[in-house]
Simulated scan of single mutants.
Amino acid sequence: MGLVTDEIRARAEKYTGDEICREKTKVFLSEVSMPNGLLPLKDIEEVGYDRESGVVWLKQKKSITHKFEAIGKLVSYGTEVTAVVEVGKIKKLTGVKAKELLIWVTLNELALEQPISSNKINFRTPTGLSRTFPVSAFVVPEIEKPATEKTNGTTEVQVTNA
């Protein structure tokens, strides 16, 4: 993880365990205005986020391949994914590849097209090639759990991400 130095690890927010890591991944994606389903990782062991530098890292037990059904694209996520994030952009991305025709292409930048209201996201490779897709293809709808009654008589509604 070349982006993640000892200094960055020391000052970053770090989380371990799949459930909290999935939640924190969605939180930081939301903070930088990126779609919540962009990183559909499984069995996440660690997530770290240094807000000062924008460096983010995610470690999962094994590589996964995810198909974004809305656009029919396969994306492979390695055991370690790192990036520098800022509002509307993920750059210096490592550990992510997309299948284009018969070959896997490394992705190194994801950026919302300007103006952000255009609802398009651009995927770039180190060679300068790029593809644009609708943001909606990477959004996972939130599912509301039914209201549950607490013992003190109040009603609680829980909202979770699918």
Rank of each mutant, 00 (worst) to 15 (best):
P115D: 00
T25H: 04
F68P: 07
R11G: 07
N161E: 09
N119R: 07
L74E: 15
V105M: 06
T106A: 10
K42R: 04
L41A: 02
I8D: 00
P146Q: 05
A70N: 13
E142Q: 14
V159F: 14
S117C: 01
R9F: 03
K91P: 05
S117N: 02
D43K: 12
I8C: 00
K145I: 10
K14W: 15
F133R: 10
I116T: 02
A162F: 14
P141A: 07
E7N: 09
A147Y: 06
E80L: 13
V4W: 03
M34S: 01
I64D: 03
G78F: 14
Q60I: 00
V56T: 08
T155S: 04
G153S: 05
T132C: 12
I44N: 00
T94Y: 02
G72R: 10
E13A: 13
R124V: 07
K26C: 13
F133Q: 13
V105N: 04
S53D: 07
T79S: 15
A137G: 14
S33T: 05
N152M: 03
L107Q: 02
L107G: 01
E46T: 06
D18C: 11
Q158R: 14
L110F: 03
K89G: 03
P146R: 08
D43Q: 13
M34K: 01
K24C: 09
E149C: 03
N161C: 08
E113D: 05
D50L: 04
V84M: 13
L93N: 01
V27Y: 12
L41G: 00
L110P: 01
E109K: 10
Q114E: 09
L38A: 04
V157W: 09
F138S: 08
R51W: 12
T65I: 10
E144H: 13
L39Q: 01
A98P: 02
G37V: 00
G37F: 02
G17E: 13
S76V: 12
T154I: 10
D6Q: 12
R11S: 09
E144N: 15
Y15H: 14
W57T: 03
Y49L: 04
P126T: 00
S136Q: 15
V75T: 11
V135H: 13
E13Q: 14
I71C: 14
L38I: 02
S33L: 12
K92D: 07
G153V: 04
T160L: 11
S53G: 06
E100Q: 11
T82V: 09
S33Y: 10
F68K: 12
Q114S: 09
T132G: 08
L110S: 02
I20H: 15
T16W: 15
N161V: 06
P35Y: 08
G78Y: 15
V75S: 11
K73H: 14
K99Q: 06
K67R: 14
P40H: 01
I143R: 11
A70G: 13
I90E: 03
I8H: 00
E31P: 04
S117F: 04
S63Y: 07
E144Q: 14
L29D: 05
K150A: 06
S33Q: 05
S63R: 08
D43E: 15
F68L: 11
E52V: 15
L101F: 11
K145Y: 11
N119D: 05
R22W: 02
